[in-house]
Write a protein that binds this DNA or RNA. Structure first.
Lengths: 207, 207
DNA sequence: AAGTGTGAACCTCTTCACAGCA
DNA sequence: TGCTGTGAAGAGGTTCACACTT
């Protein structure tokens, strides 16, 4: 099977959110142009994406929302669930923990790590906190497969290295620094400064 | 002049960070392959980017770090400085304020907004906080041109509309929702859930 | 009539490969 | 020799346009 493009995966995440909202409102069907406008895309893009994941609708009613949502769930979720480790319990780490807790049943932050004794062995936002020294132990014990980094820039590479050592294959980094991972490990850096500087460039250019 | 691609702007932000670090270490020159490996890119990409912004080096020494950094500053910074408004002083808002304060002299968070009376009229992370009702007034008075959104999903579109009404041309959104802006306004949504779900998909696929 | 599904064209960004230069 | 600068090829993603369906 042809691999699904990263961009399509991102949009699936958006589509799912829109579809879940519509389901709550009791909507049953949706046309590509409606889903497009609700997710800030184009109708052709929506149809292409759904074609890629192998979902089809009908000219009469468009797409059946529940079926489409289920197809996206099947594509994106691991039926056995996936666990996440988060390292760096600062404001950013807490924002993510807060937002995530209980939101996605198949995807949970199973453990958080920090070096501040104040935070260790507490439960923050429903999540148990450990000392960073225990990263390897806990990740292996809990069978964690996804790593989040919300530490300051300085310690981040060391955390990545530990993540990689435990066999984690996907990492999301919010530390404002460039990190290095071996081939085969997915790393996405979501740099706050970079996104604001890009916006600033646009604001300046469009002045 | 040909417009500079968004992707190149993003990398400029990364290059600048690397170059600033090197300057502190006293380095004077750098080759494209070195800058590439420090910023997780390819040498060809680095050369192409520098070509696009009109910076050139020499086969003998590569690029002169200080000159290159200055060219990036000139490209990215507004000489008169740019001001940012941030709405939503939760964990995420504070993370951004904390990180940003005093870091970039030409780019400052000039005002923060919330609806919680606890936070209003205080100074948090060196930034004055106002009630959201004052958005228009303060943005115009302070001549703010960039807007950040770190509110919950529910109120976000209303904030965007207010930003747009005041003439703000670039918005960065961290609220977990799809927002709509008119043509000509730059909007970047940095969705936490989406990035984690994407990583989860990769972890699942690479299992 | 008003949708979907999709080959093909198009556009954007990345990488190759090599001439030119110090 | 080992780099830079860049035309050209390649890869990836988006949009067009239209046959097909209900």
């Amino acid at each position: 099977m042809i691999p699904i493009p990263e961009k399509t995966i991102e949009r699936m995440s958006r589509y799912r959110r829109v579809l879940n909202n519509l389901l709550e409102e009791g909507r049953k069907h949706i046309y590509s142009h409606e889903l497009a406008s609700l997710s800030s895309g184009t109708p052709a893009q929506v149809r292409r994406d759904l074609m890629i994941i192998g979902h089809s609708g009908s000219p009469r009613n468009g797409y059946e929302i529940k079926l489409l949502r289920n197809d996206i769930n099947e594509l994106m979720d691991d039926p056995e669930g996936q666990k996440i480790a988060l390292t760096g319990i600062g404001y950013l780490g807490r924002a993510i923990m807060n937002y995530f807790m209980g939101r996605r049943p198949k995807l949970t932050i199973a453990a958080a790590f920090d070096i501040d004794p104040e935070k260790i062995n507490r439960v923050i936002s429903g999540c148990r906190c450990y000392h960073t020294d225990q990263l390897e132990e806990i990740i292996r014990k809990e069978n964690i497969t996804i790593g989040i980094i919300t530490t300051p820039a300085a310690g981040a590479q060391k955390i990545v290295d530990t993540y990689v050592k435990t066999g984690i294959k996907a990492i999301v980094n919010w530390a404002p620094t460039i990190l290095h991972v071996p081939e085969g490990v997915f790393l996405e850096t979501r740099d706050i400064t970079m996104s604001i500087e890009k916006a600033a460039f646009f604001a300046k250019t469009n002045k």
